[in-house]
C-alpha cells in the first residue's frame, strides 16, 4: 500500500496553505525531483484486458476412485489438469488483448526508458531535474485500450530522499487514464511523426502520476474536501464507460482524482467534472 515518510515537513508548510478543492495539480509547490526508471529496459506496453470471460463453467465430476487414497489421487490429477487448462485460457485471453499493441511495435521497440525519462524531465521542468531533492523511482506499465483511444498508466512510485533533501521512503501505486482521443483514427494520430504523440502522452501520464504521488506523500495525503464517502464513480476509458468504487478526492477540469478500494490514487477523465477549467 502506501508508506509515508518523515521528510515531508520540508514542504509541508507551503503545501498546507494550498486549498485542495478546485485547484489544479500544477498550482501546488512541490519539491524538485529526479526520475529513475528501470535501466535500459524497454517501455512496458500491453493491451487493456477484461477477465470477465476467464474461467470455465461449473460442472459436476465423477471420480473413478476405488478407495479414499484413489479419490485423493483422482482429485489431485483433476486439479492439475484444470489448472493447466485455466493457465492456457488466461494466456490466450491476455495474448488476444495484447494484439492491439502489435501495430505500435515499430515505435514502441525504439522507445526505451532513457527517452521516456528525458521526456518526463522536459515536461515537468523545472521541478524535474537531474539533481533533485528527491529521487523518484518509477516502474510504469502502460496499457492501450482495445479501441486504441486511451492509454492507461499504472505506476509503482517510490520516493527516496537525498542527503541534500528530505529523508524517508514513500511508496504508492498511481493509475492515470488519458483523455479519450477525439479523432476517428486514433492509431494514425498516436503514430504520426514517429509516434511523437504516443511518446509525449506517456511522458505526460508519468509526470502527472508523480505529481499525484508527491501530494499523497504529505502527512495528510490527498484528502477529500468533504467527509469521504465511497461511491461508484463512472469515467471514460477510451470510448468505454468504466466504473470504480472509490472516494472522490478532487475534481478539476474534466478529471476526477479518486482513491480506490485498494487505497491507490487514480486520475480519470469524466464528463461530470468540468469545474475550474482554465478559459
Amino acid at each position: 500500500m502506501t508508506r509515508r515518510p518523515s521528510w515531508r515537513r520540508r514542504w509541508l508548510a507551503a503545501l498546507t496553505l494550498m486549498t485542495l478543492a478546485g485547484s489544479s495539480l500544477a498550482d501546488e509547490p512541490l519539491p524538485r525531483w529526479s526520475l529513475q526508471l528501470p535501466a535500459d529496459a524497454p517501455v512496458q506496453f500491453i493491451g487493456v484486458a477484461s477477465l470477465d470471460e476467464d474461467g470455465m463453467a461449473g460442472t459436476p465430476m465423477m471420480y473413478p476412485a476405488p478407495n479414499a487414497g484413489g479419490l485423493v489421487v483422482a482429485i489431485l490429477t483433476h486439479s492439475l489438469l484444470v489448472d493447466s487448462a485455466r493457465r492456457a485460457q488466461r494466456e490466450k485471453l491476455l495474448a488476444a488483448a495484447n494484439a492491439v499493441v502489435a501495430p505500435y511495435r515499430g515505435v514502441l521497440d525504439g522507445f526505451g526508458h532513457p527517452e521516456l525519462r528525458q521526456r518526463v524531465h522536459r515536461r515537468a521542468s523545472p521541478m524535474a531535474a537531474d539533481e533533485g531533492e528527491l529521487v523518484v523511482e518509477s516502474a510504469p506499465m502502460f496499457a492501450l485500450t482495445q479501441d486504441e483511444k486511451a492509454i492507461v498508466l499504472d505506476n509503482l512510485i517510490t520516493f527516496r530522499g537525498t542527503p541534500a533533501g528530505p529523508q524517508g521512503v514513500y511508496q504508492g501505486i498511481v493509475r492515470v487514464v488519458s483523455d479519450p482521443a477525439k479523432g476517428t483514427e486514433p492509431r494514425s494520430d498516436w503514430l504520426a511523426g514517429g509516434g511523437e504523440r504516443l511518446k509525449d502522452e506517456c511522458a505526460r501520464l508519468v509526470a502527472e502520476s508523480i505529481e499525484m504521488a508527491l501530494l499523497d506523500a504529505r502527512p495528510a495525503g490527498v484528502v477529500a474536501p468533504a467527509p469521504p464517502a465511497q461511491r461508484t464513480v463512472r469515467y471514460d476509458e477510451g470510448g468505454t464507460e468504466r466504473m470504480e468504487r472509490a472516494v472522490i478526492v478532487r475534481q478539476h477540469c474534466g478529471r476526477l482524482i479518486i482513491r480506490n478500494l485498494r487505497g491507490h490514487l487514480m486520475s480519470v477523465p469524466t464528463k461530470s467534472a468540468t469545474a475550474n477549467c482554465p478559459p
Binding site: 470477465d52 476467464d54 474461467g55 465430476m61 486439479s79 484444470v82
Partner: peptide, 12 residues
C-alpha cells in the same frame, strides 16, 4: 465455478 472439488474459475 467448480467441477466437484476443483475450482474452474476465480470468484467473480
Amino acid at each position: 465455478n467448480y467441477a466437484s472439488y476443483v475450482p474452474t474459475s476465480d470468484p467473480k
